[in-house]
Design a protein around this nucleic acid. Structure first.
Lengths: 149, 149
DNA sequence: ACGATTTAGTTGCAAAAGTCAACTAAATTG
DNA sequence: CAATTTAGTTGACTTTTGCAACTAAATCGT
């Protein structure tokens, strides 16, 4: 299995272009979210009672980074942090209505951009693409928490 | 064309995992290169007489960021910066022997990791994958300088 | 020809992101 | 119940990034 360009080259370059595109569209639509904030909100909307440690594991980031990002999302009133009733060390992160509304708006924009960037890509190709992405993620050896299997 | 997860989510997450994997392997093999430095060296090895502005355009980064990255690569004696003989504003960036040797070593590691991360991916899937990546890059609207067409 | 504009590179400054170790409080282990 | 582990927090520090201003060289328009 050999690519003419390093995998990091392909992924990094593409990611960067997609990110720039999305952030500029966010700006055009007055959506004041960084990409990381958007992704955190998205993840929080999918799972209940996530803790900061959960996010740190999932996104492979230091927990102090997650903490500070959560802090700014709390300042924006997009989420709240409440102590877990069973384990008082843990803090559950809960999406607020305001946060959800912002997420919906941002997600609409993101989906529009996604669709735009995937024009010319057939359904079959997309399935292959996502399949490869998933295999790569699996091969990194980090346990996939999203599989629920 | 619709993904259940935002495109940025798929790409960003994967990129992050691949990056962590590659950087830790670099460290294990005493390769003192950031991902950006590796990618810049790789690009410089492919084209002659590139300027900093060329790199800034290609990687869609601010030219001051490129300048600083180039500065550290020069400090490491991996590249040299010489004034263009025709246009004294421009500086051509030239890979040194030392830089090339480092690139070869890093590239070997990167290829090993790429192969590892692509285990289980068929040749056909990989072709589809690269095809989709290319279409995405094309759809961002940034002119592709690599096409030479 | 020459003043105005553009381009490539550089610098400084401030904001953001990431690193790392230390610390508190709660839970778990043996 | 003492020792260890876990979740979260804080502080200090470095790196990275983004933006605007600036210099020098080239180009453009008349």
């Amino acid at each position: 299995m050999n690519t003419e360009k390093p995998l990091t080259y392909l992924l990094g370059q593409t990611m960067n272009m997609v990110k720039l595109k999305l952030l500029s569209t966010f700006k055009d639509n007055s959506i004041e979210l960084t990409l990381e904030h958007f992704i955190i909100l998205h993840y929080l909307s999918e799972k209940e009672d996530l803790t900061q440690q959960d996010l740190a594991n999932h996104f492979l980031r230091d927990k102090s980074i997650i903490l500070r990002q959560i802090n700014t999302l709390i300042d924006l009133r997009y989420i709240v942090r409440i102590t877990d009733k069973d384990d008082k060390r843990k803090k559950n992160l809960i999406l607020t209505k305001k946060g959800y509304d912002m997420l919906v708006t941002a997600r609409q924009t993101a989906e529009k951009i996604s669709a735009e960037l995937l024009t010319g890509v057939t359904e079959e190709e997309l399935i292959h693409f996502e399949n490869v992405i998933q295999k790569i993620q699996h091969n990194t050896g980090h346990k996939n928490e999203g599989c629920n299997c």
